[in-house]
Design a protein around this nucleic acid. Sequence first.
DNA 1: GCAGCGCTACTACAAATGTAGTATGCGCGC
DNA 2: GCGCGCATACTACATTTGTAGTAGCGCTGC
Lengths: 124, 124
Amino acid sequence: MANERIALTKFETEVMSVLWRLGEATVRDVQDAIDRAEPPAYTTVQTIVQRLEQKGAVRRTRKAGNALYFEPAITRKSVYRRLVDELIDLIGGSQPLVAHLVETGKLSLDDLKAIEKTAKRSKK
Amino acid sequence: MANERIALTKFETEVMSVLWRLGEATVRDVQDAIDRAEPPAYTTVQTIVQRLEQKGAVRRTRKAGNALYFEPAITRKSVYRRLVDELIDLIGGSQPLVAHLVETGKLSLDDLKAIEKTAKRSKK
DNA sequence: GCAGCGCTACTACAAATGTAGTATGCGCGC
DNA sequence: GCGCGCATACTACATTTGTAGTAGCGCTGC
């Protein structure tokens, strides 16, 4: 298992999201996939990808023409875990977090039930 | 309602946590309340509080001796909302977030039931 | 009333982060 | 086979964030 104790910045995380979604992509692909009012310059995305490579979060797979393809080298789950843990830490527990979701209407009781059902199924 | 679209850094959020907990505090109080292996210098905390003041996240309440007391000027909930929204955005929905919590064992089925119960009660 | 101490106000600075330009190289199309 | 164009590698820089020092002022105790 790779060392997954890698800290990612906001933008880096965004790029990782694209890569997880696409599986494999060039810098150009990533740039195109980023949805923003003011899209970042090509070289900006390139820099982020390079930093991710240095951190060991992505790796090169192949070359097509003279463009490199990259793929994630760490799992989505490991990154989520890190982020979620931080938030839980701040809020003071996972239960308060979910309670907050319910309170603010982000999550309905039906959602909760659905999750419960799924969880039960997968546990068996 | 005050403008609560204030972006806080990690450390700033930590300080806000202390203030929400204590209600009102001096810089010294905040420093003492921060639990770290290597505690930050007094003036470091002071700087953070000052930045928070500039951002409108805290305000001065009174002076005791020559020490200032500060209190939160934005709600805990508004900050949580911001953080949680960001995470939900990244993960792609609140349901997947909770599912992740259950999967990784951060949240048990019992927790879910407990939350449901509370939610139902408060809804009535 | 004054000395000392703690607190504030101001300044400084390194590292991280976001953002992008420049130079150069390599492959594709003609 | 050669040049054009896109991609890469490298460099640069402003801003934000974390971290802290210094100067000086106002209370408080004596």
